[in-house]
Simulated assay, not measured.
Amino acid sequence: MTSTNNAPHILKALSAMQMEISETGLAKDLPAIDKSGKELYKARGIDAVYNLLSPLFGKHGIVLGVNCLKKEREAVQTKFSIQYQTFLTVEYTFSSCEDGSKHSITVFGEASDHGDKGTAKALSMAFKCACFQIFCIPVCDDPDSTVHDKISNTDYTNSKQNMRHSIVRTDNQAKITRDQEQHLGGLLHQSGQNIADLLQHFNVQKLGDFTIPMYEATLQGLAEAGITQQAEPRITQQQVGILENAFKQGGWNPRKLLAKHSVNSLNELPASAFESTMNSISKFLQEQQVINQQPHHNQQGMNNNQQSQQQSRRQQNGNYQRNGNYS
């Protein structure tokens, strides 16, 4: 009786690749160096994995597809520095060029970085994990042969006290509203946070580009720093126009008003500043009107005073005449 292998071609191709890889394996020849230049261990780099698998994918007619199912970022602030950890859930699909059959696996990738390379590193780790698992790529030494020093209870306690976590979920890409942008801007100004550094951290151009997870993560970080006061609403565009017109008519420069509220433009003024500013302008205009009218009142006062003095002199002259005294 003859048996027929009806397995999809993609499984046959992957099995053939695994057979070839098992003959050579992939050595750990990439040294991991710490800041002092000391070699900590050796690993298999992503470039070595590419060099090993790329020709085999072509030889066996396999096309690789990738789909990032979920992404999370976490800011880890220690006593001396801050790192950004990226967590990915990635689905890899191996497709056969012969019959279109597919085989998919889901893996996780995690990486730490001081800048914006966390996603790229996490993808590299996810791909290496997928390939190591599906092809069972052998190594030249036992990865568990290195014995690491144990951490003391004191060091562990200190690390927990000096660490702060804030999770940023980036699978929700909805942007924040204008009110949320103003609220966040007010809190950042209150905290003295460098907004440019924050924008660079999240790789956006302005606060209005923040997604809801970015907004929530920043609020959480500010709250942990003790910045929880609600930002006062800003004046409306109509109120800004009224102020601009008032300053223009009076020939005034608003820089003192801006300095008083520590803002750079009228648009950033708090809502409460509008009424008080308009009251001050109105009071100033009334005082100016009184001053402009003051010469007229002085002249009238002088005329009344002169008339009073003339009348008094006439009365005195009449008395002098009656008493026979002449001046």
Rank of each mutant, 00 (worst) to 15 (best):
A27S: 11
D29S: 12
D29E: 13
L30S: 15
L30A: 15
P31I: 12
A32S: 14
I33A: 08
I33N: 11
I33Q: 12
D34I: 12
D34P: 08
D34G: 11
S36L: 07
G37F: 12
G37P: 10
K38S: 11
K38N: 13
K38A: 12
L40W: 05
Y41M: 13
K42W: 05
A43S: 10
G45K: 02
V49S: 03
P55I: 02
L56P: 01
K59E: 12
I62R: 02
I62N: 03
I62V: 15
G65F: 12
V66D: 13
V66H: 10
N67C: 06
C68K: 14
L69H: 03
K71A: 13
K71S: 14
R73L: 14
R73K: 13
E74K: 08
V76T: 04
T78K: 09
T78N: 07
T78S: 12
K79L: 07
F80Y: 11
I82T: 12
Q83A: 10
T86K: 06
F87W: 04
L88I: 09
L88P: 05
E91P: 03
Y92A: 07
Y92P: 04
T93N: 09
S95T: 12
S95W: 00
S96D: 02
E98W: 01
E98C: 00
G100F: 08
S101R: 08
K102S: 10
K102M: 11
S104K: 13
I105N: 00
T106M: 11
V107F: 06
F108G: 13
A111H: 01
A111K: 00
A111N: 01
S112V: 04
D113L: 07
D113C: 08
G115K: 11
G115Y: 01
A120H: 09
A122T: 02
A122W: 03
A122P: 01
S124N: 10
M125T: 08
K128I: 04
K128H: 04
K128C: 09
K128S: 07
C129E: 14
C131F: 10
Q133Y: 03
Q133V: 05
Q133C: 09
I134C: 03
I134E: 08
I134H: 07
F135E: 02
C136W: 00
P138K: 12
P138E: 06
P138C: 11
V139Y: 04
C140V: 06
C140M: 08
D141K: 03
D141P: 00
D142I: 01
D144W: 05
H148Q: 07
T154N: 14
D155E: 15
Y156G: 00
Y156W: 13
Y156R: 13
T157E: 15
N162I: 01
